[in-house]
Nucleic acid binder design. Structure first.
Lengths: 201, 201
DNA sequence: CTAGCATTGGACCTGCAGGTCCATACGAGG
DNA sequence: CCTCGTATGGACCTGCAGGTCCAATGCTAG
């Protein structure tokens, strides 16, 4: 299973994954050809199939894993330190800022819409990402409950689920409409609910 | 522009659109081949290109329009009569029921993820659907405000935007995880916020 | 030094899906 | 019952993208 990779080989493999990820973010999974990846990363077809013997499917899976990690990493250190209202606000602002900057180039779009159906494993990668994400948020809620900032009767998992849904939908609508309004509204309403406890019990 | 269609011709065209829509819902845009549509609808390649001279692109656009209308129609008459809390609840229940029943076969998934990028017009169709959808919700909020059931300082459009984002994200997460929990949580939190006015001003 | 495996380049193959074309059948109006 | 445009069937074409193959080159360890 673990293939023998020299230092150089590992670097090349990494270069392919990163390049493919960027290409996919910009143009969508279905639009990206192996040839495009080769051109961008300066590699040959032989290399592609050397490092990803299963072909495109396997490359897509590697890209999915890479992007999934990136999505969470981009929210740090805020996401892991939701211990006060200003901290939540800082996290919110980071999300807005990040998605505003990235615009249409969304890794989630690539992962969810298309890779999900195809690759058997990609679906699992995305599901895993979502659970980890939701877990982080729920953890923050519980911490706020421990300090009395959030009412104890709030269901942390449920509140986190709603918030995550709002984020995903907000991003999705941004990709469609080009405006950030939905994401902003969703975040603010959900954070507002956390403060008052409305609908989260 | 308007092609001469006999009664029989119009029926065939319609049959193609409906069949293609069903096929796409079940298997995804990129997986569906013209041949699949032909097989399901009992038509020939000649017919496909007779009714959709631009080919697949044009067919996809017709399907997008068909599905977009369907999405809103499926929520009636609840969506147009959000005039009391029980009415909102009934609408909520209809949404849950509908998406629970349809499972992975989601028209939105087809429209958003893929058709959006490709067809120039499909993107516009989806955007239009979202605005109409949000408008209906906002209209309901305003009606509730006029009867005093919702605080007047609530921003109807913003609240509707957040709710719509929650729905879209909830559906998206259902497609990924297979569970309805996110959609339920998102709806309940957003409706809860409407009752109390939290975060929606 | 050299053996052996990792690495690289690129020519070539092949299936397939969208699209073209034309020959035929139908059907409504004169 | 004739005629012309619509409707239908299906053979055929073609480009292209994923995948195969092998030859050549470079590392690295013993």
């Amino acid at each position: 299973m673990t293939r023998a990779l020299t230092r150089k080989g590992a670097a090349t493999r990494q270069r392919i994954v990163v390049g493919a990820a960027a290409e996919i973010r910009e143009r969508g999974v279905e639009e990206v050809r192996l040839e495009d990846v080769m051109a961008r990363t300066g590699t040959s077809k032989g290399q592609l199939f050397h490092y990803f013997p299963e072909g495109k499917e396997e490359l897509l899976l590697a890209v999915a894993e890479h992007e999934a990690d990136q999505v969470l990493a981009d929210q740090e250190p805020m996401l892991s330190n939701l211990t006060s209202w200003p901290a939540w606000q800082a996290w919110r602002d980071r999300l807005i800022e990040r998605y505003l900057a990235q615009g249409v180039k969304c890794p989630l779009n690539a992962l969810l819409g298309q890779a999900g159906r195809r690759a058997p494993g990609a679906q699992a990668v995305v599901t895993g990402l979502m659970w980890r994400w939701q877990g982080k948020i729920a953890e923050g809620v519980r911490q706020m409950q421990s300090t009395g900032d959030i009412a104890p009767e709030v269901d942390a998992e449920r509140a986190a689920a709603a918030l995550l849904a709002g984020i995903q939908g907000g991003v999705l609508l941004m990709l469609t409409t080009g405006k950030i309004d939905h994401l902003e509204a969703a975040l603010d309403v959900n954070l507002g609910s956390l403060r008052t406890g409305a609908g989260t019990t």
